[in-house]
Simulated scan of single mutants.
Amino acid sequence: MKRRTFVIGAAGLPLAAPFIASGPATAQGPAPEKPNLTLGVGGKPLLYYLPLTIAEQKGYFREEGLNVTINDFAGGSKSLQALVGGSVDVVTGAYEHTIRMQHKGQDIVAVCDLGRYPGIVIAVRKSLAGTIKSIADLKGRRIGVTAPGSSTALLLQYALQKNGLATTDAAQIGIGGGASAVAAIKNGGIDGLSHLDPVISQLQHDGDIAILLDTRTEAGTRALFGGTNPAATVYLQKSFVDANPVTTQRLVNAFLKALKWIAAATPEDVAKLVPEEYLLGNRTLYMQAFQNSRAMYSPDGMVTEDGYVSMMAALRALDPELANAQVPYERTFNPAFVRAAKV
C-alpha cells in the first residue's frame, strides 16, 4: 500500500502526576492512555478530509496531548485494511465502513462525524457530454474513483443501480487523489470520474468535465439518497475505545475544534493554512473549491439517526450481503465522546 507519512509532535507537556502510569496529566484532565497514535486516511489533501488537516495544522492534536503519525493511503478502503490489520490505531474514513465491518463481526465504531454529505461528484469528460447525458449512459465506460472499495466507488455503484444499471456496468479505475486524478481526465485515460474537491473544482475551472451528479449540497445528496448521508468520520476498533477512553476523548476534542474552526473560517483562512501542494497550483481555485464543499462538513460531530437510516437503505440496495442486515445504529456510532467534549 503506497502511503505518505506525516508526524505531529507533542511537546511541553507537564510532569506526570505520581498516580498516573499512562503518561503526564494535562490541563484538560487525565492523561491519554496512548499518547502516540497512528492514523490512517485515504487521500488526505481532499476536502473530504479537511478537518484532519486543520487539526494537524492548527496543533489541536498537540493541545490534547497527542502525538499523531498520519499514514496517507491511496484510498479509504486501504486505511480500513490497515485498521483491521493493526498497523494504524484510528482512521478518518467513510461512515459506511463501520456498518460493513459490524456486519462482518468486526467491532468498529465511529466516534465523531466530519461530513454530513458525501461531497462526491460524478462527472464525465467534456468531450463526451453530448453522448453521456445521464448516469444511465455510463454503461461500458471507464470511471475513475479514488480506489476500488472506497466511498467514491460505492457512491458510483449506488448511482448506477438507482438508474437501472448493474454496479459492474461501468469499469471502476483507481486514480488516487489530487494531481493524479486531474491528470487521468486530462490525458483521456478515463471517460469520467466519481471524485471530490479540490479535484472536481479544478476540472470544472479548466472546462474538462460536465457534472452528472453533485452531493456537495443537501439537495444533491437528498436527490440520490433521500436524506442526509454521513460521509467522513473518525472510527476505531471498539476494543481500543474501551481500553483508551481518555485518548479517544482527546481525539474527538481535536476534531471538534477543527470543525468549529472550519465553520467560522473564510476561504482565504483555509487556503493559507493547508500545505501548498493542496492548492494544485491555484490558490483562488482552491478557495472556490472549499466554498463549493463547505456545506458538507458536520456542524456538531454527530451521526444522526436520519443519516444512519439513509446509509443503511443505500447499503442494503447495493450489497446482497447486506440486503437483510440488522446492524443497530448504536453499534456504528458512539455519541458519548461528542457529547462530553468541551471545545
Rank of each mutant, 00 (worst) to 15 (best):
V90T: 10
P32T: 10
R294V: 13
A258R: 13
T217K: 13
K2P: 05
Y117E: 08
G140E: 11
D137N: 13
L196N: 15
F337K: 10
A314K: 15
A153Q: 03
A16L: 09
G188Y: 07
P335E: 08
Y117L: 11
M1C: 03
S127P: 00
G174N: 01
I185H: 07
R283H: 00
E56D: 15
K104S: 06
G85T: 01
Q157S: 07
K44N: 04
A258E: 13
T98M: 01
R141M: 15
A153W: 02
V90W: 12
T228A: 10
G43V: 05
G207M: 10
V241N: 05
V7H: 10
F255W: 14
I108P: 00
S150K: 02
T5M: 08
G226Q: 09
L47R: 09
D208F: 09
Y329W: 06
F337W: 12
I185T: 03
S87P: 04
V109P: 02
G176D: 02
P328V: 01
I122M: 06
G29S: 07
T92R: 05
Q157I: 00
L213Y: 07
L154P: 03
A313K: 15
G307L: 08
K342I: 07
A181Y: 07
S87N: 07
K58L: 14
R116D: 00
N187G: 02
M296E: 15
R116C: 04
L279N: 02
E64R: 13
G119I: 03
A271L: 01
L114G: 04
G105C: 15
E33F: 05
D137K: 08
R316S: 14
F255H: 11
L37M: 11
I108E: 02
L279T: 03
D169S: 15
L50M: 08
G130E: 04
T146D: 00
S194Q: 05
L193M: 08
G189Q: 14
A17G: 11
V246K: 13
R142C: 01
P32K: 13
R250P: 14
G220H: 14
Y158V: 05
A313L: 05
I132D: 06
N253I: 10
N324S: 09
V124Y: 12
T98K: 05
L154D: 06
T228G: 12
Q326F: 03
H97L: 09
T152N: 02
A313M: 06
G174M: 03
G307C: 07
L138A: 04
G144V: 00
K44Y: 10
S87K: 09
I209G: 00
T98Y: 09
V84R: 15
L155N: 14
I135E: 13
T53D: 12
T69F: 03
I20C: 11
Q28C: 09
Y158A: 12
A336C: 04
I211H: 02
R3N: 06
Q202R: 12
W261C: 09
I173F: 06
A17C: 11
L156T: 02
